[in-house]
């Protein structure tokens, strides 16, 4: 057992415990902060897998963007006067059964198929990813920009208050 593998085990345990807290806690604000911990842990996993650009993007977009949006969503939709921030899990047994089925299928797939062995190299990736965006993946990159613009306008159109004159 070398040091890289030890770091991987510690970071995976961190991510899975944080995710377990997110799906079981009764307080929606605590769930949001548990998600923060899980997303940071995944950035740590990317560092262990030598994906430096992806780790930076994870921290910038997920931790700095999506998670802040989630906390906004919590704060804007919870009534502070009533019993606040309560979360409940309902449909517990059907949900657990469905998860057990999916877990069984995934574990079977992981164990049966001969996955290729990893041959990690610790070279910086940012420059090469940037070149791939502008050569091999140019069309998906441009489509993504248009999609982001559409999402920007669509989100504003959906979220604003209706001002119909009738």
């Amino acid at each position: 057992m070398n040091l890289t593998y030890l770091a991987f085990v510690v970071m995976s345990a961190w991510v899975l415990l944080a995710a377990l807290y997110v799906v079981t806690t009764r307080n929606v604000v605590r769930a949001a902060y548990g998600l923060l911990a899980a997303l940071f842990g995944i950035a740590g996993l990317y560092v262990i897998f030598a994906a430096d650009f992806l780790a930076a993007v994870q921290v910038l977009i997920y931790v700095g963007g999506v998670n802040i949006l989630i906390i906004f969503g919590v704060m804007l939709t919870e009534h502070l006067g009533r019993v606040p921030f309560r979360l409940v899990n309902f449909n517990l047994f059907p949900a657990l059964a469905a998860c057990a089925l999916v877990a069984f299928a995934l574990v079977l797939g992981v164990l049966i198929y001969p996955w290729p062995e990893s041959a990690a190299s610790y070279a910086p990736t940012s420059a090469r990813i940037g070149q791939m965006f502008l050569t091999k993946y140019l069309l998906p990159f441009e489509v993504a920009s248009v999609l982001l613009l559409v999402v920007l306008i669509g989100a504003v159109a959906v979220a604003r208050k209706e001002v119909r004159d009738e």
Partner: peptide, 27 residues
């Protein structure tokens, strides 16, 4: 070196936790 199956196992566990939240949460 980290074997690929271990990483995939962590991914599978995380996926199932997310699926559980998707199916059972009300909020």
């Amino acid at each position: 070196m980290i074997p690929a199956t271990h990483i995939l196992a962590v991914g599978a566990a995380l996926f199932c936790l997310g699926l559980f939240a998707l199916l059972s949460r009300r909020n």
